[in-house]
Amino acid sequence: MSLLAALAALSAALSPDGDLYVAQNVFFAVIAVTMIFSALRVVTTSNVVHAALWLVVVLAGAAAQFILLGSEFVAVTQVLVYIGAVVVLFLFGVMLTRASLGDDESVGEEKRGMAAVVGVLLFSVMAIALIDSFEADRLVIDEPRSVSTVSDAIFSQYIVAFEAVSVLLLAALIGAIVVARKD
């Protein structure tokens, strides 16, 4: 079984004398555990404002992972857009729908089981596929990818996609106004 072999190799590499026992991986493990814990709190807490704050932790963790992966610009954007704008937007949404005042007791009991089954099923399929395909591929990150490379790519190779996204944002802006305005 290639799956078992892969797992064995992984655990060997992660042991204190394996080649994966490096500072980056320690950071990764700490951040990953924090993220998973926070994400679980986001979907289980009964207080909506708390959920939004736990979401901030997950998003910040993702930004940290981006830095680990050598993608500084994406990390910065993550902080600016997600933590700076999206979470604030969520808090406004919570405020305007008055759901923040009390606890949100309505976590559907009958749905939890179904949702958990679907989630675990999805995860097992994905995990098997990932371990099977990428067994022990290493990431070698010598230096971070610079902003100038990213911007060059955006404004040359992906200019059409970039324009499309800007039109999409405009449409979303107008759409949100049209949907939400009182009339």
Binding site: L10, A13, L20, V22, Q24, N25, F28, A32, M35, I36, A39, L40, V42, V43, V58, Q65, L68, L69, V107, G108, K111, R112, M114, A115, A116, V118, G119, V120, L122, F123, M126, A127, L130, I131, F134, E135, A136, D137, R138, L139, I141
Partner: peptide, 23 residues
Amino acid sequence: MLLNQFLLLSAVLFCIGVYGVLA
């Protein structure tokens, strides 16, 4: 670092998100 550690983290977050959407 392994590629898979990031991918598995991503899979975990994805499934937690799916759980949240459904529950």
